[in-house]
């Protein structure tokens, strides 16, 4: 049961690694494809996992960003993410983790209330993105965004650190968690 820690390995030269965690295999795969299509100066590596912890045997590069994908249509995907969160070191939440909620567009299909995921993201002080991954355009935009965030998390953007991300990604409408 290894806990995932950030910065525990040496970074690969010009590589940025993202880990997508979620039960929606097909959507994750599509998102990964969209990300790899993005034009990016760094070498991208996308790892997909259904849940955490990851097997300790595998030789994997340093993980720069974890994105937890929750499908609002399925409670199972939320439970799965909640359980996976136990296997992540707290320091990951200093800007190197994010939540992605998909399926909010079809309100009538939702099994998970939107506030539940907002709350979850708040408690972990991590940014939350809403995106319907089933729609290609939205997915492409989200992929672009994630690539940018990943580059920052991997330290490929001089002058900006992952530590800045939580405050930078906070939208002005939702108050900071400490204000609540």
């Amino acid at each position: 049961m290894s806990v995932l820690r950030p910065l525990d390995k040496q970074p690969g030269l010009n590589t940025a690694t993202i880990l997508l965690v979620g039960t929606e295999d097909a959507l994750l795969q599509q998102l990964a494809d969209s990300m790899l299509k993005e034009d990016c100066a760094s070498e991208l590596r996308v790892h997909l996992a259904r849940s955490l912890p990851l097997p300790s045997s595998a030789n994997r590069p340093r993980i720069d960003l974890i994105v937890f994908v929750v499908n609002l249509h399925s409670k199972y995907s939320l439970r799965n993410v909640e359980e996976s969160l136990h296997h992540v070191d707290a320091t990951f939440f200093l800007g190197k983790a994010a939540f992605l909620a998909t399926g909010a567009g079809r309100e009538s299909h939702c099994s998970v209330h939107r506030n539940t995921i907002v709350k979850l993201a708040h408690t972990y002080r991590s940014p939350l993105f809403f995106c319907d991954l089933e729609i290609e355009d939205f997915r492409a935009t989200m992929a672009q965004r994630l690539v940018r965030v990943l580059q920052i998390c991997a330290g490929h953007v001089p002058g900006v650190s992952a530590l800045n991300l939580p405050s930078l990604l906070r939208s002005s409408e939702t108050p900071a968690p400490e204000d609540l």
Binding site: E107, S108, H109, C110
Partner: peptide, 9 residues
């Protein structure tokens, strides 16, 4: 007025 699964439960 559609009723989503959340409210159904």
């Amino acid at each position: 007025l559609a009723i989503n699964a959340f409210n159904l439960s």
